[in-house]
């Protein structure tokens, strides 16, 4: 259970990016966050694991208040929050196995990390998860030898290795081709059910959001202005979320990730 209350984020003295945002995510649901660029989607996600420090408000994960945690406590809390990135954020020069084991870094002692002597159960779990997403045969390959879709699977497994209580995905498909993009979305949906894991996805592609998630949240100017099932997202709601944004971006939100990539990058 994730409960965000009154979340405000302000960079320096400028206008706040998040203005008193409230959001509850319960159980094993997949929630899509849609909204124009600059609506604050990415900031919202990064506030949850405090890669970005929230200015005000409260974020509670399964009863634990995250915003007030000190260094060591924060590290412990972060282990429970998996994150998947738009650019995969893998370490290119390490093998897939090492990248995957990065998800365990918060749990294992330093010497194990340094000598690559991972605990047997972690290795077993890694193979198991890699098999589940179809990349087990790449374990000894360097991460930069993989294709985009495969790299994102490594990113997903890394996050799952943490045994997270929630998964945050920041535009996980925006750098992928349409086919891989759908595969990743499907994977996230299935994993959410298999592991009874809440998944929070920032997404540009509204068509994918409709298809793969049970709940869609629309953001605009740092606030939630839509919250409902895909069926409730009618033209009026779409206009409210995207009105005033350049036609080009509107369009690519409706069409697909291939075009979305051009705008994002």
């Amino acid at each position: 259970m994730l409960r965000i209350q009154n979340l405000v984020k302000r960079y320096g003295h400028g206008e706040p990016v998040l203005r008193g945002l409230n959001l509850d995510v319960a159980g094993e649901s997949v929630v899509s966050i849609i909204g124009a660029s600059g609506a604050g989607k990415s900031t919202l996600l990064r506030c949850i694991n405090r890669l970005v420090e929230p200015s005000e408000g409260s974020i509670e994960l399964n009863g634990l208040e995250l915003t007030t945690l000190k260094r060591e406590e924060l590290r412990k809390a972060r282990r429970r929050i998996g994150m998947i990135f738009q650019g995969f954020n893998l370490v290119d020069r390490l093998t897939v196995m090492e990248n995957v084991q990065c998800g365990r870094l918060g749990y294992i002692p330093y010497w194990r990390a340094a000598l690559r002597k991972y605990p047997a159960e972690d290795i077993e779990r890694a193979y198991h998860l890699m098999e589940r997403v179809g990349i087990a045969h790449y374990a000894n390959k360097r991460a930069d030898a993989l294709s985009g879709g495969e790299r994102q699977r490594v990113g997903v497994v890394r996050a799952l290795m943490q045994q997270p209580e929630i998964l945050l995905a920041d535009e996980p498909t925006a750098s992928l081709d349409p086919v891989s993009s759908r595969q990743i979305m499907e994977l996230l949906q299935n994993l959410s059910q298999e592991l009874s894991l809440p998944v929070l996805i920032n997404i540009h592609n509204v068509a994918e959001a409709r298809e793969y998630t049970q709940r869609i949240v629309g953001m605009r100017f740092g606030k939630l202005i839509f919250d409902g099932a895909p069926a409730d997202l009618d033209q009026e709601a779409m206009d409210a979320v995207y009105s005033g944004t350049p036609g080009e971006e509107r369009q690519q939100a409706d069409v697909g990730p291939a075009q979305a990539q051009a705008v994002v990058s």
């Binding site: 694991n49 890669l51 924060l74 590290r75 412990k76 809390a77 972060r78 282990r79 429970r80 929050i81 998996g82 994150m83 990135f85 650019g87 954020n89 893998l90 370490v91 290119d92 390490l94 090492e98 990065c102 998800g103 870094l105 918060g106 330093y110 990390a113 340094a114 990113g155 890394r158 996050a159 943490q162």
Partner: peptide
């Protein structure tokens, strides 16, 4: 590249481990 550093910080790895891996 800053991005792997960010990713490893997000997993709850300590500073020394982030240095070692990212």
């Amino acid at each position: 590249d800053r991005r792997p550093v960010e990713a490893l910080e997000a997993t709850g790895a300590s500073r020394a481990k982030v240095v070692l891996y990212a």
